[in-house]
């Protein structure tokens, strides 16, 4: 194959793929006028869904960071022969169909399932069909994205730099706070924003585990799912809003990673 033909083939395939990705997004944006968008945003159902989504996605992201950051650090520091297997297991939910993740959550936390009776004995309310279930579903599906990003960011900190800190008199906690976190911060922030965007768009696991109760567990994606049957304009408006929020998060993530916008 000549270089010219190769260049043409590259551009053609890349253009087809980029078009395939851009076309649905463009269709959404073309379908929504500012007037319909403003009208939809005045609907209480839409606002409740937006509020719940923003709140649960933020809570899920913070909880993921709190748990997955230490986990990523341990996985980076500890060299065990189980590390590969453990990492695969921890990242598996991101590769599973969300419905499978939702079913797993139901079987783990459902009232009469694995942990349900124990939670009841401890006087805790059932988790399924509550906003807590929305957060758990988002954590399970979006968490692996942060874990992967955090591991990459932490592994990029040169070991000699950590050793320099130790020799200069800093303990492990001080080194983590003063050296590791600042050096890994762009990667960690980028990972958190991508996780937040993914949590915001989570649908399958949420529907199965948290249900779709307006004002209680109905997130933006669940609202789009049901509104599409009855009010297409509202569904499109919600979709455009979700699209803009996700795009904003991804652009910010790129900015955090020091990439050109």
């Amino acid at each position: 194959m000549s270089d010219r033909l190769f260049g043409c083939a590259l551009r053609l395939l890349a253009g087809c793929y980029a078009g395939l990705v851009a076309l649905p997004l463009l269709a959404l944006l073309l379908h929504a006028t500012p007037a319909t968008l403003a009208a939809a945003l005045r609907s209480p159902v839409v606002w409740q869904a937006v509020g719940l989504s923003l709140l649960t996605a933020t809570a899920a992201t913070l909880l993921v960071v709190a748990g997955a950051l230490p986990l990523a650090w341990l996985l980076t520091r500890q060299v065990t022969r189980w590390r590969g297997l453990l990492t695969t297991l921890l990242e598996l939910p991101a590769a599973l169909p969300p419905a499978v993740a939702g079913l797993g959550l139901l079987l783990a936390f459902g009232r009469y399932q694995l942990l349900g009776p124990w939670l009841t004995r401890c006087g805790l309310p059932p988790v399924a069909l509550t906003p807590a279930a929305v957060v758990l579903a988002q954590m399970l599906v979006a968490g692996p994205l942060f874990l992967r990003a955090a591991r990459a960011a932490l592994e990029a900190v040169p070991p000699r730099v950590l050793q320099a800190s130790a020799v200069l008199g800093a303990g492990e906690a001080t080194t983590f706070r003063r050296i590791v976190l600042p050096l890994a911060r762009p990667g960690l922030l980028g990972g958190a924003l991508v996780t937040w965007a993914r949590a915001l768009g989570e649908l399958g696991a949420t529907l199965l585990f948290a249900g779709n109760l307006p004002g209680w567990t109905q997130t933006m994606p669940s609202a789009i799912f049901v509104t599409w049957q009855v009010d297409r304009t509202a569904a499109v408006s919600l979709s455009v809003l979700l699209l803009l929020l996700s795009a904003g998060a991804l652009l910010l993530a790129r900015r955090c990673a020091g990439e050109v916008l």
Binding site: P158, Q163, S165, G169
Partner: peptide
């Protein structure tokens, strides 16, 4: 004793400075 308590200075070949 951990490195932090040995009070030995170490200059690495690649300097290993804190980039931030």
């Amino acid at each position: 004793l951990p490195p932090a308590r040995r009070r030995l200075g170490y200059v690495f070949q690649d300097a290993a400075l804190f980039g931030h």
